[in-house]
Design a binder for these strands. Structure first.
Length: 432
RNA sequence: UCCAAGGUAGCUCAAUGGUGGAGCGUCCGCCUGUUAAGCGGAGGGAUGUGGGUUCGAAUCCCACCCUUGGAGCCA
């Protein structure tokens, strides 16, 4: 017997095949049972008529319960009336692999966020979550492809680190034999080292932030892609970012149209997301926000409502560049023409998804970097190797970091980043 | 950490201080084209925890616990 998948079912019209999967839903009408099977590649309706079946097969069709695992053998036919994939299976045999006894926790009706997160291991089986996971996988693959095709080398950063890259308060501390170590907040410093070895590099891996944030934009564990390039100018850096973001979006639009449709994402908005993106200086952004009623003053960081206002105003991702150095990370390179601002930029996503990218030029001067480490009260001894990079063949360089979950949330149109992580970690939730 | 909302059946939610209900799910029955099917029936409850006010508390008050959203911080 030919075993196939729902995705491939169109190749077997009027043939008898076997599908293996789980019972998504069942509808009965007397001597007729509709079994909705899912197998990870799709959903298909299987129809069992009592008069066509041996008694034990009919009994199996009647008694099989939601999310029981089963193998169904039957004839494939094109069927206009069938939901999901346009094909339907006429049941000939059913083999129940494992029957669910009692209630399956997740019904097809609405549930609250807390309940769904408690059952994340089962929530993943629903169509919307399957769609988001497929989009996430495509974003990951497209991200690697974009940089691989452009001569970047994938160099992964360590997750266990000794030094606090961006301050100590937001770090998860762990025991490391006799010592203490931290879970990495960013791979950037290591990417700088790798860029001076290999020219163009990127890492794609998890980052950990012990921030007590409870918003739809925050997770304590999230994935980040961090390219870093030697001899890169600030303008080239921004161009790389907008080309990368556009590439991923256009590719997901092409390859994951069905999933975006299932999620009811308005793809016409995404289709317009092509490079170049609007760019506004921090100075002008502050003026614009003040005109729109924000209380922001020059020197303040952008608040979440400010980011939303900018997103509404531009309706595209927008770069805000040349922030005051005082509110940015210690390694940010000052603008040679205006030392009080940094050659950095944040890319703000539309629709309130917040800061998608933080990036910019890194300080390449040894003495200035030492000065900044002192000003930020960071332990100089931990940055010995990082300072070496400025001692042995320093070059202008830069890069950026993009949060994968925020990117996927924006592309998918889901409200909360927790839906874009397979098993999200938030401040009060590490199960399942 | 702060601000706000909330906690009632497995789930989603009702219930003027006066005998705790509905829809869905589960179980039983009916139905040969259902589309989160429909119809009939059954089962299902320390109303988050502890105190207080009251003849009487899911409802009012206090404390604590938990959840959700937001702020700050960040991707």
């Amino acid at each position: 017997m030919t075993v196939t998948t729902i995705e491939e079912i169109h190749k077997y019209p009027d043939q008898t095949v076997t599908l293996r999967g789980w019972l998504y839903n069942k509808r009965e009408s007397g001597k007729l049972v509709f079994l909705i099977l899912r197998d990870g590649t799709g959903f298909i309706q299987c129809v069992a008529f009592k008069k066509d079946l041996p008694e034990e097969v009919w009994d199996a069709a009647k008694s099989v319960t939601q999310e029981s695992s089963l193998m169904i053998t039957g004839s494939v036919r094109k069927e206009e009336r069938a939901p999901y994939c346009g094909y339907e299976m006429g049941v000939q045999n059913i083999e129940i692999v494992s029957k669910v006894e009692g209630e399956y926790p997740i019904s097809l009706k609405e549930h609250g966020a807390d309940f769904l997160l408690e059952h994340r291991h089962l929530w993943l089986r629903t169509p919307s979550q399957m769609a988001v996971m497929r989009i996430r996988a495509e974003v990951m693959a497209a991200s690697r492809d974009f940089f691989n095709e452009r001569g970047f080398v994938n160099v992964d950063a360590p997750i266990i680190t000794a030094n606090a890259c961006e301050g100590t308060t937001n770090l998860f501390q762990i025991d490391y034999f006799e010592d203490q170590a931290y879970l990495s907040q960013t791979g950037q410093l290591y990417m700088e080292a790798a860029a001076l070895a290999l020219g163009k590099v990127y890492c794609l891996g998890p980052a950990f932030r012990a921030e007590k944030s409870k918003t739809r934009k925050h997770l304590t564990e999230f994935w980040m892609i961090e390219p870093e390039v030697a001899f890169l100018t600030f303008e080239e850096n921004l161009a790389m970012q907008e080309e990368y973001v556009s590439y991923v979006i256009q590719r997901v639009l092409k390859t994951r149209a069905a999933e975006l449709n299932l999620l009811e994402r308005d793809t016409s908005k995404l289709a317009d997301i092509t490079a170049p993106f609007p760019k506004i200086s921090y100075d002008d952004a502050v003026k614009l926000l003040q005109e729109k009623g924000s209380e922001i003053q020059w020197g303040d960081d952008l608040g979440a409502p400010d980011e939303t206002l900018l997103g509404e105003h531009f309706q595209k991702p927008v770069f805000v560049h040349r922030f005051p150095s005082a509110i940015k990370a210690f390694y940010m390179k000052p603008d040679p023409d205006r030392p009080e601002v940094a050659l950095g930029a944040d890319l703000i996503a539309p629709d309130g998804y917040g800061e998608l990218i933080g990036g910019g030029q890194r300080i390449d001067d040894y003495d200035l970097l030492v000065q900044r480490i002192q000003e930020h009260d960071l332990p100089m001894e931990a940055f010995g190797w990082y300072l070496d990079l400025r001692k042995y063949g320093s070059v202008p360089h830069g890069g950026f970091g993009l949060g994968i979950e925020r990117f996927v949330a924006w592309i998918s149109g889901v409200e909360h980043v927790r839906e874009t992580s397979p098993f999200p970690r938030t401040i009060y939730r590490i199960q399942p």
